[in-house]
Amino acid sequence: MRRRGKKRLVKYLVINIVVWALAILWILPFLGIFMVSMRPFSEVIVKGWWHIIGHYTLKNYLDAWSNPSSPLKVGFKNSFIVTVPATIIPLFIAALAAYVFARFSFPLRTMLFIMLLVIMAMPQQMTVVPLFFMLNKIGLYDKLEGLILIHSAWGLAWITFFLKNFFDTLPREIEEAARVDGASDAHIFFRIVLPMSLPAIASVAAIQFTWVWSDFFYALVFLVSPQNYVATLQVATMKGQYYVDWGLLAAGSILTMSVPLILYALLQKYYVRGMVGWTVKG
């Protein structure tokens, strides 16, 4: 009896130590980059960032924020200009479509739904070349508006899929009750269904915001003028080809990831539910 208990305790301790060691290993790069960002690079390169004693300064952050060649303050502004509409527009449009997919049967319904799934499996690379010509033709190449449109369209497929799955779980009786009570279709959708879907909408908004904010590929391809660069593009250009100023880069990295990280801290539950939800179950 006692031996069993002891064995169990040892097992428990080993598991805890191993898992936590792994967790610490996982967070180490974040700690490291944070330490580097807070201290003069000359000091870090000599002693290593793990020596806690030394000078602490915000100089790297100030440099990154108003760097003469790629000022992050401009990148931040551009990132917000792109990300906010590219979150709201597809969320709204996809919610309408998802509701139709969840509640009505109509010709081509299955085919259109499969089309959405195929788009979800497509790499972004598959759209770039024609989009480049299209944007040039309509004058949106190297424009934030063009990027907004492309991100909005690209987000529609997964958001529709996600929200359709969510609407499927809502009891139809509530909408039927509203219809008997005299509500119009628009009223039912906007005043009953959408408010009931707030958790799903929060998940979608958090994830779409993060993805658009984090996007690098579309921005790299469709933005050329430095004054139009979004934050991810600027951080990437801060890293020189041969010499790396880690202090500046660390501060830039932390600033760039701080926006989705803050969102994650605020909406952690919705994040996780969203990441899991849109993949689990059809």
Partner: peptide, 20 residues
């Protein structure tokens, strides 16, 4: 006619109250 034009009211098995 649509439900709203029939002047009927309905009680559902799971009550269908608006949760929000």
């Amino acid at each position: 006619l649509e439900p709203k034009d029939r002047d009927v009211a309905m009680v559902f098995q799971n009550y269908a109250l608006y949760p929000h």
